[in-house]
């Protein structure tokens, strides 16, 4: 039997524009998801430890193939205040989704067919980054959204005290600068697609701060810590940098 109740259903919203279907690996230690985005330039890794659920029960390993497109619709109509419970019995072909709206007491139940997802295994090596910078997640989202209104990609430059996001396009250029108190091994400058940063920043509601781990030769990491776990977004560097 598997049963998990999760109070941050907004997490689904943060990844729905990146991946359509994914296996949810359910273990006694928690739930994990690791998947490449549709355009094969980003990887989403989510870990939710068992302690973040009330309750959590999983007595055997289970892989649930879930359509995030469908899950998003279900969660969206329940509203932000809803809790989401996943249940599965010994039949791995179907699982139950139970949404509970705390304010009204309304309970919505679904029986969902598990999807057979042909998912390749991704191995993520441990990496030492040139810069690891933590900034308020709301500021990060504001900067990405603001710059993306007019421009397509952003150059990140980080020095010991400040991180600068600057961008230029047909209409001109723009930049935003933020103070930070993080450690850098040296100054760094690299270019990232704003479209993807805007997507990653949809996880803003999950955490007060976001950590950017940057190096020029390896995928950049955008990480949101959630209660008993994390949401990590890896993004491939531009070729020729």
């Amino acid at each position: 039997l598997f049963h998990a109740r999760f109070e941050q259903a907004g997490l689904v919203d943060a990844i729905k524009d990146l991946i359509q279907d994914s296996d949810f690996h359910c273990r006694d230690s928690g739930i994990a998801l690791r998947n490449m985005d549709n355009s094969q330039v980003a990887v989403v890794v989510i870990l939710l430890e068992a302690g973040g659920f009330l309750p959590y029960h999983c007595d055997r390993r289970l892989n649930l193939g879930i359509s995030l497109t469908s899950l998003t619709k279900i969660v969206h109509y329940a509203g932000d205040e809803a809790t989401l419970a996943l249940k599965a019995n010994d039949n791995p072909d179907t699982f139950n989704l139970v949404l509970e709206c705390l304010q009204t007491g309304c309970i919505i139940k679904y029986d969902i067919k598990s999807r057979d997802i042909d998912q390749e295994h991704l191995e993520i090596p441990k990496t030492d980054y040139a810069a690891t910078i933590t900034i308020p997640s709301a500021e990060f989202q504001r900067i990405c959204r603001n710059l993306s209104q007019l421009l397509e990609s952003v150059a990140n430059e980080a020095s010991e005290e400040r991180i600068k996001f600057s961008s230029s396009g047909d209409i001109g250029s723009g930049s935003a600068t933020l103070r930070h108190n993080s450690d850098l091994t040296g100054p760094i400058a690299l270019t990232i697609s704003l479209k993807y940063l805007v997507n990653f920043s949809k996880a803003t509601a999950l955490s007060y701060s976001v950590t950017l781990s940057l190096s020029s030769e390896v995928p950049q990491l955008v990480e949101y810590k959630v209660e008993s776990g994390f949401a990590r977004f890896y993004f491939a560097p531009q070729i020729g940098e």
């Binding site: 490449m36 330039v41 980003a42 295994h121 531009q238």
Partner: peptide, 14 residues
């Protein structure tokens, strides 16, 4: 997107 690397080349299990 032009100039954008493929994430699979970094993370796929060899």
């Amino acid at each position: 997107a032009p100039g954008q690397g493929d994430i699979g080349s970094y993370f796929f299990k060899k």
